[in-house]
Design a binder for these strands. Sequence first.
DNA 1: CCCTGATTCGC
DNA 2: GCGAATCAGG
Length: 243
Amino acid sequence: MSWTDERIDTLRTLWEGGQTASQIAEALGGVSRNAVIGKAHRLGLQSRPSPVKPNEPEAKAAAKPAPAAKAAPPPAPPAEEVPFDTAPPAPPAPPAAPKPATPVAMADDDVDDADDEAPAASPAEARPAADVPVMRSVGPGGFLRQNPGEQAAPITPAPPRRLVPAKPSEAIAGKTSLLDLNDRICKWPLGHPGEPDFHFCGDKVNPGFPYCVAHCGHAYQAQLPRRDRRPPPPLPYGGPRVR
DNA sequence: CCCTGATTCGC
DNA sequence: GCGAATCAGG
């Protein structure tokens, strides 16, 4: 196979669309994953986070001061994820509102007092605004001192929940779909095409076969000469009138 | 083990 | 230019 304009275009589209090199190679056909990667690089499609290259070699001498000053979120791919629609701009909550510092209860086993906090507010994870490096002084013993106003700040109101459509097909979630098939996973169908939960076995194949070992046992059965077959198979337990 | 992308280097 | 081989992290 050669890199026709059309195939290059497909490669570009899929690569920038976040498909992995393997997926692209399979979609194109006739090329290996390495070919796809090599071509992508030659095309200058270099981006995309690599699991092996966290950053460029720029961490030499001055690496201590402010590692948190990286305000570069990923290039916001056209992914179809729709989590919450809560507004991301977390209010930095500058040092203000010097609240009289309600002491945090140390014991958790209290059931009697429930006077603070709104009852409907689920704390979940208090997201600190991580875009501003927080400076703290160090107290004796090494603990980090709390900054003024820091205590009351990070309580975010419970974000409004909104129901969003679940991802495709709940019945098939986690199952091996047609798109997941490749040379090394079992293609034994489970269910029937058209049914909502139709999927494939997905186990590792018996090498050289399209199915796993177990399903090869279904697909390929030894054929004995007629006279050597055993007509009366053993009656299973639970059979009709076993006696 | 499986996966991933990056890089090298002979063709 | 191409891509298999190899590397290296998850």
